[in-house]
């Protein structure tokens, strides 16, 4: 349940943001979460609701947007979406670091992010 540590950092920084300004109410946050992270949207939302109770940002919404993965291959210069593992028996496609063009190991250039993108509030 590492979502809890992520959300606790999130709530802390939003509360700091609010404390430093004259903000009446925070309406919502938009989060960008990379495909290569191990973060579940539902769990992030659940933790957010639980952790914001009885705080100044209680009642605000958390929107989570998934950032698709992208890889870069140093061997054949491929840049783009990763190769997905179809036989992984997973409910969602599993991104790999196998280069879709040459099959050697590529590097992920996108998909590891977890960022607060925007904050919406009333002054």
């Amino acid at each position: 349940m590492h979502e809890l540590s992520i959300v606790s950092g999130l709530v802390e920084s939003v509360l700091d943001f609010v404390a430093a300004r004259s903000i009446k109410k925070v309406l919502g946050l938009r989060l960008c979460v990379g495909e290569l992270t191990h973060l579940e949207t539902e769990q992030l939302r659940f933790c957010y609701t639980a952790m914001t109770e009885q705080t100044a940002i209680h009642g605000s919404t958390l929107e989570v947007e998934t950032v698709p993965a992208e890889v870069n291959c140093a061997h054949c210069s491929y840049q783009g979406p990763p190769k997905y593992w179809d036989e992984a028996l997973a409910s969602a496609p599993v991104a790999t670091l196998q280069c879709p063009r040459c099959g050697l190991t590529a590097e992920a250039t996108r998909g590891h992010e977890c960022e607060i993108k925007t904050i919406k509030y009333v002054t």
């Binding site: 992520i6 920084s13 009446k24 993108k117 925007t118 919406k120 002054t123």
Partner: peptide, 19 residues
């Protein structure tokens, strides 16, 4: 003059894994 109550939607781009 800004109305007494105004809604802002601003970009923050703050990474949570950065710390």
């Amino acid at each position: 003059q800004a109305s007494p109550e105004e809604t802002y939607d601003i970009e923050l781009e703050q990474s949570l894994l950065q710390a």
